[in-house]
Design a protein around this nucleic acid. Structure first.
Lengths: 349, 349
DNA sequence: TATTAACACGAAAACGGTTTCGTAACTCAA
DNA sequence: TTGAGTTACGAAACCGTTTTCGTGTTAATA
């Protein structure tokens, strides 16, 4: 297809415009930026030519010159969780409004991939990081890669899964408080035998949500019963745990630390002919599609991922644009709320 | 915190290493790459120093020099669909294996954002595109941004939502065939009054899946009944349409062009006390979490997003690495399969 | 008419690398 | 002793920009 090849307008550079118009590269550059150093005649000529040939400055060259890329790197453990995609949307919103581009990388919950991704991005491709660390990283407690980029003077904002060991800006939800509120809500609708579906303790959010659960019980004068706690590593463990619990224990409310465990439990309850919410009420963490389209639709703790993303991006950009680096870091706590749907009863007057 | 600042090792460059070791920049560069032009002594000295100061070459500089970034740009309409995140995983898999980095951008189903994102990335940040165009772009049929990057000599691979107007490599699922198979399956399990839940016709995949539905009916000798078709733009329209249909028509099978419409329909059926799958069977397109965690779990058409991503990445990288650009483009059709779950009956012998 | 200021532009350095080419110093054989 | 061939390195160009500074030309002023 010689036609296509010959019709190809290869990307035009300043140098080519300069040669074609018989002026210097500097003149072209200035003319394009409407410098008052350049005569109106020349400006018009250059801009017309640039437009004709669809000139676009090369981002890479500009990044090199300015020593900043106007890119923000985002690293998330996975994309399949609605929460993370909401955070990404929030980040994009603020970033784009400030002329920043967002580069997303996925660690896949792997420490190794997290390190690789960070190293790849840290060498000039981005100006700062927004990251939620992987489960594996939380388990290993190895944060050298985070320390390294911070030491290089690159701003970093952590969200959701954070570490107190790292000194940087953070945006989190108050997991303990959110869980507390959810369980209190169950209690206020008349539940008293409330089960907890959780993950192993090394996942920071699992631990905190468990804490909130226990506090809520205590404040309501309900005794903690460890037979009503299921800790699961997988869907299957969760299903099995719930099955046994429903068989041997009386339960009238279930609080799950994520939406998947919640719908698994609902399914199990429905198999056993429990009515939802009349016999058992359910609340899950994370307001995603799974909850929204569950039957009945699941009441959830909404973490406002979009807001979290916005705040994280605002913090990062503030750090990026400040003149003299300051070493003052803050942790922002985003309030959660309950999205009441049909898996819970109404408040009893 | 003067301590932290003073402990900051700013990024070290070749020039600084050269100055420190009193050799030239070229020598340092060569030494780091084990050039045989350089004596072993010098190599050792330089590499030791580089390691000590944790030298990492600046990607931006290398990109500028090589005129290639080793980055692949991926543009998807949204991240909240499992299908797209699966595709992204597949792309990442192949890309990383070939030392390419993946930059993800989200068009949010907006033509405008799609154009902006493409222009942003096209100016040096990436070497090639993998894209599924937005609904709005499909509606407007305005593909100038795609044509532009192609004309600039940048390889582009389209997937899922493609356009015949654009001449490039493509990876698609055979939507019509997949729908055909799904509906034939419903028929083979004894369904004969099968409803279709679809989207407006301008969405290419909606049209094709509708076609497959009609062909399946025809081949089975079942007359097409337009009263059994619901075309919806939103969840609400879908719910309303299904409600009416179940009220006035006899239906024993429902095929939906996405998983959300399918679970909405299931919920509606359950409200009306239909048993699933005994009274009505359901199949949805897209094998995501919503289907997996529905109750009952939904039988779906699985599009093998991971495979699609892998193939798209392979095609793109092949184009990127070939010596002389060839203008031969292919369209690859990835086979779908059915993930049989509890929303459908078993095959009748 | 001589001096100065404004104007319009180009040369060159810089960002951080890679690579080509030139060359000083040394080794070795004739 | 001379010529050729190695060895080990540096200078410079280059990728595509931006920006500082210098300068020739013209216009305005004394």
């Amino acid at each position: 297809m010689a036609y296509r090849i010959s019709s190809m307008k290869r990307k035009v550079t300043l140098k080519e415009i300069a040669r074609e118009l018989d002026v210097s590269v500097s003149t072209v550059s200035k003319a394009l930026r409407n410098s008052k150093e350049i005569s109106q005649d020349t400006i018009d000529k250059v801009q017309a030519f640039a437009k004709l040939y669809n000139y676009r400055p090369n981002n890479i060259a500009i990044s090199l010159k300015n020593r900043r890329s106007k890119n923000i790197g985002v690293i998330v453990p996975e994309l399949s969780h609605m929460f993370f995609t909401q955070v990404i949307s929030g980040i994009e919103n603020i970033a784009n409004a400030n002329a920043y581009n967002v580069i997303i990388c996925v660690s896949n919950e792997s420490f190794q991939k997290e390190v690789i991704n960070m190293e790849m991005l840290a060498n000039g491709s981005i100006d700062g990081f927004i990251i939620a660390i992987s489960k594996e990283t939380q388990l290993k407690r190895d944060f050298h890669h985070l320390r390294e980029v911070i030491n290089q003077g690159m701003p970093l904002v952590m969200f959701d899964r954070v570490s107190e060991e790292i000194y940087c800006d953070k945006v989190v939800v108050d997991d303990a408080q959110a869980a507390y509120n959810a369980v209190r809500y169950l209690i206020s609708t008349g539940c008293s035998r409330i089960a907890l579906l959780s993950t192993p303790d090394h996942v920071s959010v699992g631990k905190l949500r468990t804490l909130g659960y226990m506090n809520a019980l205590q404040d309501a004068g309900i005794e903690f019963n460890e037979n009503l706690v299921v800790k699961a590593n997988s869907d299957e463990e969760c299903e099995e745990g719930v099955r046994k619990m429903l068989k041997y224990r009386v339960v009238d409310g279930i609080f799950a630390v994520n939406e998947i465990f919640a719908v698994i439990a609902m399914r199990e309850a429905q198999r056993k002919q429990f009515r939802i919410p009349d016999d058992i009420s359910f609340i899950g963490f994370t307001d995603g599609n799974i909850s929204k389209y569950a039957n009945p639709p699941l009441t959830t703790v909404v973490q406002h991922g979009y807001d979290i993303g916005q705040h994280a991006a605002m913090k990062l950009i503030a750090k990026l644009e400040e003149q003299e680096p300051d070493d003052h870091f803050t942790t922002e706590v985003i309030k959660t709320s309950l999205n009441l749907r049909e898996s819970t009863k109404s408040l009893t007057k």
